[in-house]
Computed example of a mutant assay.
Amino acid sequence: MISLSSHVLDTTLGKPAAGMQIELTDAVGNNFITMTDEDGRCSAWGDIELTASVYQLRFFTGSYLLEKHGNSFYPFVDIHFEVTQDGGHYHVPLLISPFGFSSYRGS
């Protein structure tokens, strides 16, 4: 079984980014919109069944960063990643600040 989780951390505050909207889109355009929980995490993706393919996570960072910091250079951050059939669990963290971001494949 293939599973996906994400975690958004605000590196300026040193805290999770709670209440951030995230959209998962698969290779054929099916999408699901959800929000990070109070710990900045998300692992519920609605009816999308993950299979070997390319996916996109769009993090709607602009409104969060404007609310918390009064400034945002990035209205959203898109991360494209490839899932393989035997990939198991995928964890895609996002580290954000008003003027920068980074991501990696977590565990």
Rank of each mutant, 00 (worst) to 15 (best):
S72H: 11
S97T: 12
L94N: 00
V77W: 04
K68V: 14
V77Q: 08
V77R: 08
S72T: 14
D78L: 10
V92E: 00
F73M: 14
E67R: 13
K68Y: 11
G88N: 09
L95P: 00
P93S: 04
H69N: 12
L95F: 03
V83S: 05
F73E: 15
F76N: 08
L65P: 06
F73S: 13
I96T: 03
P75K: 13
S97L: 02
L66K: 14
G70E: 13
S97W: 02
K68A: 14
I79Y: 09
T84N: 09
H80C: 04
Q85R: 08
H80Y: 12
H89D: 13
D78K: 06
F73K: 14
Y74E: 10
L66Q: 15
S97N: 08
L94E: 00
Y90K: 06
L66C: 07
P93A: 03
G88I: 09
I79V: 15
G88A: 05
E67K: 14
L66T: 13
I96Q: 01
T84E: 13
F76V: 05
V83C: 07
S72P: 07
L95M: 04
F73D: 14
H91K: 05
L65F: 12
Y74R: 04
Y74V: 02
D78A: 10
F73N: 10
Q85F: 02
H69K: 11
I79P: 00
D86C: 00
I96A: 01
G70Q: 12
P93Y: 00
G88W: 08
G70N: 11
F76K: 04
V83G: 05
F73H: 11
T84M: 05
I79M: 04
D78T: 07
N71E: 13
D86Q: 09
P93L: 01
H89Y: 08
G88C: 04
E82V: 10
I79L: 14
V77E: 11
N71L: 14
D78W: 07
L65R: 10
D86K: 05
E67A: 15
V83Q: 08
D78F: 05
E82W: 01
L94V: 01
Y90R: 08
F76P: 00
Y90Q: 06
L95E: 06
V83F: 07
F81I: 08
P75M: 12
V92R: 00
K68H: 14
G87P: 06
E82S: 09
G70M: 12
V77I: 15
H91C: 03
H89E: 12
Y74K: 03
G70H: 11
F76M: 04
D78R: 02
S72I: 08
V77M: 07
